[in-house]
């Protein structure tokens, strides 16, 4: 087996600009997502994810332009998530140069949307975002549900839907990959929710991307070895230059994980 574990930097974009800030050394304009994408491309990132967190409808169109400009310069796979609700949204993103789309709220409100999208564009380009949070009423081993429920609308809206069950159902409908984010860990730098990642990764056939909570390079290793993830996604540790992509790859490779070295 020589398929490599992927490292995926994630850029939050609003109105065509990177938000949350990016602090690379050589960027002229740290707010330009295309410039940031090119820096990651040059550093050997395995894929790139744009998360469009634009709230207004008017701002939405800028993401197409960002994707189009990125695809002109970066010959690597690009995923776009955030606000993907219709077949037409997907078509426009793919035509702009995206390779995959990540779908969250629309997958919960209309699971058949995933089936229609997968039939139309192929399973390989449909990523379902599973934003999960530990249930307050979780009785560990005490009921039939897992410990986590899913949230929509950028983690603001609880649904009462079981995360592990939801993940399996999305794969049945045609999701080709799952982006599993722990809402509890997101932004905390305390590491992935490994139990959550593993519970989902072990119950589905498709690859799982671990997300939410990376603070150290060991967290990335743990996501793979203990979380059973096929790819690891991180934002701030790379944006702020805490670690570079080559450092992360070298660290993971030293610990026995097959990586694509630049």
């Amino acid at each position: 087996m020589s398929l490599k574990t992927r490292i995926i930097p994630c850029l939050d974009v609003a109105g065509g600009r990177v938000v949350k800030g990016v602090n690379f050394v050589d960027l002229v304009d740290a707010g330009d997502p295309v410039e940031a994408a090119m820096a990651y491309d040059a550093a050997g990132a395995d894929e790139l994810t744009f998360l469009d967190i634009t709230a207004s409808h008017e701002g939405r169109d800028t993401i197409f332009e960002v994707v189009a400009r990125t695809a002109e310069h970066c010959f690597m796979p690009v995923t776009v998530g955030g606000g993907v609700r219709s077949i037409d949204d997907i078509r426009k993103l793919l035509l702009a140069g995206a390779d995959k789309v990540a779908i969250n709220s629309a997958a919960v409100s209309d699971p058949d949307f995933i089936a229609r999208a997968a039939d139309k564009f192929g399973n390989q380009c449909i990523v379902v975002s599973v934003d999960a949070k530990q249930r307050l009423d979780a009785k560990v081993g005490g009921d039939n549900r897992s410990e986590w429920e899913i949230y929509t609308h950028g983690g603001r809206k609880p649904t009462g839907i079981d995360a592990v069950e939801f993940a399996a159902r999305m794969v049945e409908r045609g999701a080709g990959e799952l982006l599993v984010t722990s809402m509890d860990r997101d932004g905390t730098k305390s590491g992935f929710d490994l139990k959550l990642t593993r519970a989902i990764a072990d119950s589905v056939e498709v690859p799982v991307i671990a997300s939410g909570g990376v603070g150290t390079l060991q967290d990335l290793v743990d996501g793979v070895t203990e979380g059973h993830a096929s790819a690891v996604l991180a934002a701030s540790i790379f944006h702020f230059g805490t670690f570079t992509i080559p450092q992360a790859k070298a660290y993971m490779a030293e610990r026995g994980i097959a990586m694509r070295m630049a």
Binding site: M1, P207, S230
Partner: peptide, 14 residues
């Protein structure tokens, strides 16, 4: 052959 391998075969390979 290894049942643990994910499908699709997705990512970078030689």
């Amino acid at each position: 052959s290894d049942r643990g391998l994910k499908i699709p075969h997705m990512g970078w390979n030689t």
